[in-house]
């Protein structure tokens, strides 16, 4: 019995200490005032005198008010949600056909094809983003290729555009889209499609009325896995996007590292978290069903 308790307690305490408590601290600091010191924020509770009644509570809503007053933060938030939505849809558009083709290919090939999808995920994320700089820049691979083809006679500016950000996110998160989709499509009962075909249903119609609806859980899981991290993405917009691009992850990074305004950075983190709480909970419930249904 005590062994069982230890098995649970060790990871439990670790995650409480290093995952849950930090959020409480972020919440606390988001309500405190900036000061020039180390750490650069004022404590929430202050002892002004000797007695217990002298405790002063410095709750400061200023950081949050500031976020709503300055249009920059609101714009960054809206822009991040938009970028994440568009990239998720693009990833679905590329990932679904790929997952479908793998799930319907010869069983002997499936393992290898799936491994080929995951392989890029094992190589450095940063270097994969970097690869696109060489492809997209003005004298890069893609422009040279298009010039050689004669499609264009002037290089197109592709690097440091929103297009490059979308491309980078789709590229880096594609395996996360393909994996749940494949898991779903591979399990699907193919006899349903055969039955539909025997009854004279055309393949495209059979896909739309059978395959697509049945694969919705996979679609949702894949989209969540791309959308949630993409909203707070920092590296991809920093390397590929426009230098003045407003992404909330970039704003948080700048507030923290360049402006050294920890309370405002914390407030940004809290707002971002509040926005993502609904999709994260939804994702968790879906995960729970998946693993709960197995047993």
């Amino acid at each position: 019995m005590s062994g069982r308790t230890a098995v649970i307690a060790l990871p439990y305490l670790w995650l409480l200490l290093f995952f849950v408590i930090p959020f409480v601290i972020v919440l606390k600091i988001s309500f405190s005032e900036t000061q020039i010191a180390m750490p650069p924020y004022q404590p929430l509770l202050q002892w002004a005198g000797e007695r217990l009644a002298d405790i002063r509570l410095n709750v400061n809503f200023g950081n949050f008010l500031y976020l709503f007053e300055d249009r920059l933060y609101l714009l960054a938030l809206v822009n991040s949600l938009q970028v994440a939505t568009v990239s998720t849809l693009l990833a679905l558009l590329i990932g679904y056909p790929l997952a479908y083709a793998i799930a319907r290919s010869d069983p002997r090939w499936r393992g290898i094809l799936l491994m080929l999808v995951i392989l890029p995920f094992w190589t450095s994320f940063l270097l994969r983003v970097y690869a696109w700089i060489g492809i997209l820049k003005n004298n890069g691979l893609l422009n040279n290729f298009l010039l050689w083809l004669g499609v264009i006679d002037q290089p197109i500016v592709m690097l440091q555009t929103d297009f490059a950000t979308y491309l980078g996110i789709v590229y880096c998160y594609l395996p996360f889209m393909v994996m749940p989709l494949y898991a779903n499509l591979e399990k699907m009962d193919v006899t349903l499609l055969e039955a539909a075909e025997d009854l004279g249903c055309r393949p495209l119609r059979a896909f739309a009325s059978i395959t697509l609806p049945l694969s919705l859980p996979g679609v949702v899981a894949g989209c969540m896995l791309v959308f949630i991290p993409a909203v707070g993405e920092y590296v991809i917009p920093a390397l590929l996007g426009p230098s003045d691009s407003l992404m909330i992850g970039k704003v948080l990074w700048t507030e923290f590292f360049n402006n050294r305004d920890w309370p405002v950075a914390s407030a940004v983190a809290i707002v971002l978290l509040l926005i993502l709480v609904a999709p994260i909970m939804y994702f968790q419930r879906a995960q729970g069903r998946e693993s709960g249904g197995r047993r």
Partner: peptide, 15 residues
Amino acid sequence: LVMPEVITGLSLLLL
């Protein structure tokens, strides 16, 4: 698994 890294990083640093 899905938490944006900037949030995890900031919260751990503050801890």
